[in-house]
Design a binder for these strands. Structure first.
Lengths: 341, 341
DNA sequence: CTGAAAGCGCTAACAA
DNA sequence: TTGTTAGCGCTTTCAG
């Protein structure tokens, strides 16, 4: 019998039914500290519930310039650890009364700008952004922040900018990972990363360099595309010193590595120890893929970013700061987990 | 020098600058077919752009009861083919001027109700829903649809309900998959599925039964949890007839199957042919996992739902119907792709 | 052709 | 303690 929608009933419908003013109803429903007859208060609450009253959020936003909504902007919600991160954020925010507008910037500055503009049009209260192209829109984000919208950088941080951020302590994690390789007996260490750099990726590179000698010729950069990785690594794997190890900036580089391993007969982790960030994605239906995966002859440690904690921090920062703008937070670098066999 | 936000400027700011009424500006910006001096029109357009005018969507919604937003509700945006489906939907909708509110119902009716209510509060123009608990909230969805919000079922359909839907032709795909097993020489066919049934899953079961003999004792149902699957399958794999094959309702059942295979020494696809729906997720860092994966000795065909086409259909249905409510669409069952080696 | 004015549902300042 | 009222920014009649 419930009827959540039935001809969008409004504040004044309740007011009418109960016999009070809309103000009274508004005050009660928002439990403002305004004294009102306890009987009436109860009655209002009751009828509102019975009628399944739902405030018209458009009207609320118009009046208050707050939308009870948060925009999330990521390059691609299907990659890396983003799906899990976003899901946790959504759940946490919703339980705090915020709805979530999720946007894919495709890691493209112009696209990100459009999304940001649209979100501002909607008066989102806050933004959780993984800035595209390593922060190309920082000036815009700064303006948005100045205009009163809370801006939080997630996953990535922008040095020299004053945005609050929640990220992984990538340097420490990379150091730990590299150390693991060294302790496993690796003498010659390679680093495979993306060509396009930004601080978070440089942290990883830096962390590895902290822990082990990294010859300049052992730093291999290329676009994170399977074929490119494959090609890039072939010559390296062909003349692989004994006791080699490779650090993957992200495990989305793994398929290409395995392709090259297949073509050169290098088994992992037997002949080449390996460790990398983020959940690897393996498909099992293509014979070609399969023959690559077969080069994996044992478990491979993975550096798993702690998305749960990151999402918690992000949600807490947003909700608490929005409720109480004078709250102070310090940027967060969450420790990653080294998943060993 | 752009300033997308600077003290939310409004229609009247432009009107003031140009020296016309807000009406004129509004009409021009929405290119209403209202005749207006061509010089003024140009000037208005120009200043609006120069000032980076953005309409206040809250005000628009309030007036029009339309939000230029679509709600997407899925059980869990990280599982199965949902990440890709949602991403494509988001991209397609945004390019049509709609923003996207993504919600995780956690496959829980009460949670879904909350999300739906919140979305309605916001006057979303349409909903793309993967109904939780197999459609427990159908009555609510019906009411929402009656109240004028476009409701589309995605992935799942609800028989007896009149919602438009976009789904996979699961019956045909399952039939094809089962046929493939039969042609590969499978004599004894097993079906492994979830305990909780709904039409989409029953279609898959039906499709398999269409193509091959499926003894009642060969239909294995259990919760889609790795440990349960493991346990459920142990006795079966222990006494596995020669020429066996197993159809997985979803490849998220695969890890459990492989665990059981490891414990019983059954190799796949050597001793047990296998095929299943949806992208499998394999982790590689746990020794335990790894020993399970090692039971996979060759590529395994996968039934890949065509999320691109589904998303296209869904986005088209929503945008076209919203633009032109008299448009007529027929529910869609998209063919899945059998990914063979 | 163009502009003034009403009002969407809600909140907050002000009267009573 | 309560009710009346004036907008929030926009669209949309309806006069001019």
């Amino acid at each position: 019998m419930s009827s959540i929608d039935a001809g969008p009933l409004g504040l004044k419908d309740i007011a009418g039914k109960v016999g009070v003013s809309t103000t009274a109803v508004s005050n009660v429903l928002n439990n403002k500290p305004i004294r009102i007859g306890d009987a009436k208060r109860r009655l209002i609450l009751h009828t509102a519930r019975a009628l399944h009253y739902r405030p018209n959020l458009a009207a609320c936003s118009l009046k208050s310039k707050k939308a009870r909504a948060i925009g999330i902007v990521v390059p691609d919600m299907t990659t890396l650890h983003y799906p899990e991160l976003i899901r946790r954020l959504e759940v946490a925010l919703f339980s705090n009364g915020y709805q979530t507008l999720i946007c894919n910037s495709q890691d493209d500055g112009a696209c990100e700008r459009e999304h940001l503009a649209a979100l501002c049009s909607r008066f989102v209260d806050g933004l959780a952004v993984v800035p595209a192209e390593g922060g190309i829109n920082a000036p815009l984000l700064r303006r948005i922040a100045n205009s009163g919208t809370l801006v939080l950088c997630v996953d990535i941080y922008l040095p020299k900018e004053r945005f609050h951020y929640v990220t992984t302590d990538g340097r420490a994690a990379a150091r730990e990972g590299a150390l693991w390789l060294v302790n496993a007996g690796v003498k010659k260490l390679y680093y495979l990363g993306e060509r396009r750099r930004h601080p978070v990726l440089d942290d990883r590179l830096g962390g590895v360099a902290d822990a082990a000698r990294l010859d300049p010729d052992a730093i291999l950069l290329c676009p994170p595309v399977r074929e490119h990785v494959h090609e890039r690594l072939l010559p390296v794997l062909r003349r692989l010193p004994a006791g080699s190890g490779i650090f993957l900036e992200s495990n989305r580089l793994l398929p290409g590595l395995l392709d090259a391993a297949r073509d050169t007969g290098v088994t992992l982790p037997g002949r080449l120890r390996v460790i990398g960030f983020d959940p690897p994605v393996l498909t099992i239906h293509r014979a070609k893929d399969f023959s690559s995966w077969r080069m994996l002859t044992g478990p491979v440690p993975v550096i798993r970013q702690d998305v749960a904690t990151m999402a918690d921090h992000a949600a807490e920062y947003l909700t608490v700061t929005l409720a109480n703008p004078s709250a102070r937070f310090v940027p967060v670098r969450v420790a990653a987990e080294l998943c060993l066999p």
